[in-house]
Write a protein that binds this DNA or RNA. Structure first.
Lengths: 173, 173
DNA sequence: GATAATCGTTAACCTAGGTTAAAAAAATGA
DNA sequence: TCATTTTTTTAACCTAGGTTAACGATTATC
């Protein structure tokens, strides 16, 4: 059984309305999600209700809270910015399939490796770059991001306030 | 073949002097390293030579540059703060072993999942916490860190300058 | 044990980004 | 379409942290 077959057999397809949560911070949730259609944000809220955006998700992307998969609670919530269609796989089923099938395990390892690369990149940007450098890099990688995502959300993804992002955008060159 | 057997069979043991690099930023390096003895730092340098510390490594920890494993170059360097003994495994051998053996693949998936959790945590701290909150959290998790690591290096791990860390430490409460 | 190098602290000054608030612009909805 | 909500901009003021430099305290090195 390869990855696609697993998805065919065990994948659960679900639709979500715009402005709804797939799961919330603090939930239990043992699923890995694959985005089929739509746009989402993964976000943290602190005690004061302040929002921090971990990532945006577009068709083809996937996500899970690794804390929650390992028996804990979701450290972040997953929120639909547009009407969204997801495919979800139970982590237990994925692990079982991996244990019984080397080809499938290999797909999972590839998935986790690509996740590792993304996280390594994000850590690098947050640790080593200024907000302005992070903004330029984001624009370079996703030139049409502002068609999909509000500037407020882009700011919270960059780790700054919307006011600060507006300043960066209009800074005299 | 389980994980320990793989390590026994293919693991290469190596010793490094204090102040030496295991690999440098920009190198090719297809190994996964396991720390047996010693202390290391994984660090980035920018064009100006400014250092940013990705992580510290102690016995039991493991590391690899996921970019380099995927055919790219090491995005960071690995530097010994003390005389160090490492065990290294070629990623190609690991992947081959995983493809041929479900039990072993499962160990690799566990390893990658624990890596994912660590990176999720680090991303959260860099995105959502202030430097002072990050410092307190580090002290709570590793109360003896300042016995092992200089304050300069702790500052660069937190993403601030040594001067700023000194200020935080001596801030009137 | 003497000398050099590194580390930690302090001070003065600077800058990026936070906070609040208000107004303009844009998107959403009845 | 008109009204309402949300987003973006701008301004004034504030704070955390950066920069540079000096000095004493440790640590290494010979």
């Amino acid at each position: 059984m390869n990855f696609n077959e697993l998805v065919q057999q065990f994948g659960i397809r679900q639709c979500y309305k715009k402005k709804s949560y797939v799961f919330s911070q603090g939930d239990e949730d043992n699923y890995i999600y694959f985005v089929l259609e739509g746009v989402l944000k993964a976000c943290y809220y602190d005690e004061d209700g302040k929002e921090y955006i971990k990532s945006f998700l577009f068709p083809g992307d996937n996500i899970a809270s690794s804390q929650a998969l390992s028996g804990g609670l979701c450290s972040f919530g997953l929120y639909c910015l547009k009407e969204t269609k997801l495919l979800k796989l139970s982590y237990q089923q994925v692990r079982q399939a991996a244990d019984n099938n080397a080809e499938f395990a290999s797909s999972i390892i590839d998935l986790l490796m690509s996740f590792a690369m993304k996280k390594e990149q994000r850590e690098f940007e947050l640790l080593c770059l200024s907000a302005e450098q992070r903004y330029k890099k984001l624009l370079a990688k996703s030139p049409d991001i502002s068609q999909q995502i509000t500037q407020n959300d882009i700011a919270r993804y960059l780790g700054i306030t919307p006011v600060a992002l507006s300043r960066i955008k209009h800074k005299p060159r």
